[in-house]
Simulated scan of single mutants.
Amino acid sequence: MIIATVVFLLLLALAVTSTRVLKEYEQGVVFRLGRLREPLGPGARMLLPGVDKLIRVDQRIVTLTIPPQEVITRDNVPARVNAVVMFRVVDPVKSVMSVENHAVATSQIAQTTLRSVVGRADLDTLLAHRADLNEDLAKSIALMTEPWGVKVEVVEIKDVEIPEAMQRAMAREAEAERERRAKVINARGELQASAELRDAAKTLSESPASLQLRYLQTLLELGADHNSTVVFPLPMDIIGPFLDGFRGRTAPGVSGASPVTNTAEGTPDEH
């Protein structure tokens, strides 16, 4: 009876030590005496103690942060760039057989590719067209990690740090660009306004009555401000004959120019 109990306990201990439980997101790569076996799915799995070796492979998405990298862009601007890489294992056997540590290898490849891709782009592309660089990074990293059974899901450049002197230069450039646009818009507005004024003058010249109404409207606007000075515009067709007569009387060779001037000055007094 005692022997049976001991044997039962030994078998129970052996069953406990031989049982491995794999979670739903894990797969197991098993080596029996150094030889590769078929991968094991999730659930309870029996292994031979001392004979089988189990390596658990997590198939969830792993977030890998690339530390800041010192790079020089194509237009010779120094910058510090960091990024984030999201990947997951799609082939557990390759991730174990093809590379020693797929996470470390992916991190090193991501750092090298980041420096290479950013070095081929200029600063404007790095700041304004980051999506294109992210796509290029993802393709380059995925091409290297595919033989390891690792699939790159997302590659995003997180932050770009440039020297302070370059930031001030970019700020001055942006301010100059805004001033240039403001001057261009102002010039275009003046051009359009002059064209509209020309059309309005043509329209008013075709109708003397409308021009007279415009004069009256101007007087109404001046009177609404309660000004002490009143400006009364006179049409050229009214004062034209008076000006012609004045020029004729003051023409060269005509005597008595001074009396004419005095007469002209006295005219307002008579009125």
Rank of each mutant, 00 (worst) to 15 (best):
P252L: 04
M166C: 06
I238K: 06
M170R: 13
L47I: 10
Q108E: 07
V84T: 15
F8T: 15
A195P: 02
A128V: 07
W148D: 01
A4P: 10
G50H: 08
A174V: 02
L9Q: 10
M97K: 12
A171Q: 13
P163H: 02
I55E: 06
R32V: 01
A264Y: 14
A131R: 14
R188T: 12
P259W: 11
R20C: 05
A209D: 11
V118I: 11
Q217N: 08
M166R: 14
R249K: 13
Q111L: 02
V150Q: 00
G189I: 08
N76Q: 11
L33F: 10
Q217C: 03
G41C: 11
Q217M: 06
N186C: 04
M166S: 10
T261C: 12
V184L: 13
K94D: 01
L143M: 09
N262I: 14
S210E: 15
V152N: 02
G245A: 14
L48A: 13
V6N: 04
R88E: 04
V77E: 02
V155M: 01
R168K: 11
T19H: 10
A121W: 07
P49H: 06
L14S: 13
E179A: 09
T263G: 13
Q217R: 10
G28S: 09
V154W: 07
D237Y: 06
E206C: 05
A251Q: 10
R56T: 14
F246G: 05
V6A: 12
I238P: 02
T267F: 13
T229D: 05
N227R: 15
A79Y: 01
R168I: 03
P147H: 07
Q69S: 07
L216E: 08
D269W: 12
V30A: 09
G34D: 00
G189Y: 10
D159R: 11
I162G: 00
A138T: 10
E38D: 15
P235V: 01
S258L: 15
R249Y: 05
T65G: 01
S194W: 05
I239G: 04
N134K: 09
G189T: 08
D124G: 04
K139P: 00
T261A: 14
R32H: 08
R88H: 15
E196P: 00
A264M: 14
E175C: 00
P252F: 07
R37E: 15
Q192V: 09
A257E: 12
V51C: 03
P259I: 13
K23C: 06
R214E: 11
L47S: 05
T218F: 07
P208L: 02
L123N: 02
Q111A: 10
P259S: 14
E164D: 13
G50W: 06
R32A: 02
V260N: 01
D52Y: 00
A4C: 12
L64S: 02
S194R: 14
T65F: 13
V118C: 02
K183C: 03
A4N: 14
L14P: 03
P92D: 05
S258F: 15
